[in-house]
Design a protein around this nucleic acid. Structure first.
Lengths: 180, 180
DNA sequence: TCCATCATGTAAACAGTTACATGATTGC
DNA sequence: GCAATCATGTAACTGTTTACATGATGGA
């Protein structure tokens, strides 16, 4: 049994969902994603699909036909099994509680700035986060013809962004009041 | 000008905040963090501080004195400057909108499971997330003697976890109603 | 015809983790 | 004296990104 990353599982999922397809089609899925978790760069995807094929989770056939050589990949029975197992609960804790927040990280060292710059930092970040949330809301308004999963995913991103914003306003209120 | 990662900046911040200290003291800071973003493993920290020293952002002196050789690191003037620049707004977009959510990723491929297992997945993940939030609340109750920044950081983690939970309940409600 | 973009790939770097090795110190 | 754990470090590996190279296709 090999251990796959979330990206490898996701590639497996894309190939399963979008039928026999080329590595480039998989790439585009990540490149065009409105909720990007990975870059979908060539250097990631091409070696990755070959790895999955060697592991027996994908199979491929020649697709070139007098064109530049290319391959169509599909998920094998064993690949489908791996995909289902990935989706079967319970999830590992690391997937339930994912970690880093760059703003939170910076917060710990805010005292390295003089007081007025501390406030400027918090003001600016609140403003940036407000803009980001506004963008997300705009996106949701704009593209009405999205499939339900995409719509839910975007809502998730927005919900989390809004929560961070609320928290950061709280932070500003708390730290702003502090006596220097 | 060298480009540092968030972890490198954070190490710089820890050494600045905790005064001249050993690499191990820095490690512990990450190992014991209630809001962990990095493992603080030896293989990360020891090479990292040497790197920062070679870049002129840290300086060190022998601390051993008939003990096993050890070094006390402190932040140089140049290091303090880098630390402040890191904290100065505006932040890069990637820091405002950090990305991956393993649950969201899985959502896209939920149809690979039969309908009853789809529901089981959503139920289970909601339950796991509820437990996680409950843990976070418990932690906040328990440790009253935390410094303000730590307390704020924990609140941030909880806020985001709660937002994800609310979102996931919404997802369950939406997808549960779907006709198979 | 030429330029943009589609498409396939490789090489090198990078950041971070795991696992290991080993010396020193403390508490039983 | 012996075990646990404190402390310092190295080596190998892993997953991902960046940058590059290059061929094919379609539209101006």
């Amino acid at each position: 049994m090999i251990r796959l990353t979330d990206l490898e599982h996701a590639v497996l999922g894309v190939v399963w969902r979008d039928g026999p397809c080329t590595p480039y089609a998989v790439r585009k899925e990540f490149l065009d994603s409105p909720t990007p978790s990975w870059s979908g760069s060539a250097g990631t995807i091409y070696p990755l699909v070959r790895r999955l094929e060697r592991a027996g989770l994908l199979a491929s056939e020649e697709a070139g036909r007098d064109r530049r050589p290319s391959r169509l990949y599909r998920v094998t029975a064993s690949g489908r099994r791996v995909l289902r197992d990935w989706l079967r609960p319970p999830l590992p804790v690391t997937e339930i509680a994912p970690g880093a927040d760059p703003i939170r990280t910076r917060l710990f060292f805010l005292d390295a700035l003089p007081p007025d710059e501390r406030e400027a930092f918090l003001d600016m970040v609140v403003r940036q986060l407000e803009e980001h949330v506004a963008d997300l809301r705009g996106d949701e308004q704009g593209e009405g013809r999205l499939d339900p999963i995409d719509r839910l995913a975007r809502r998730g991103v927005r919900h989390v962004a809004e929560a961070r914003l609320r928290w950061l306003r709280e932070v500003r209120a708390t730290l702003g009041r502090r006596s220097p």
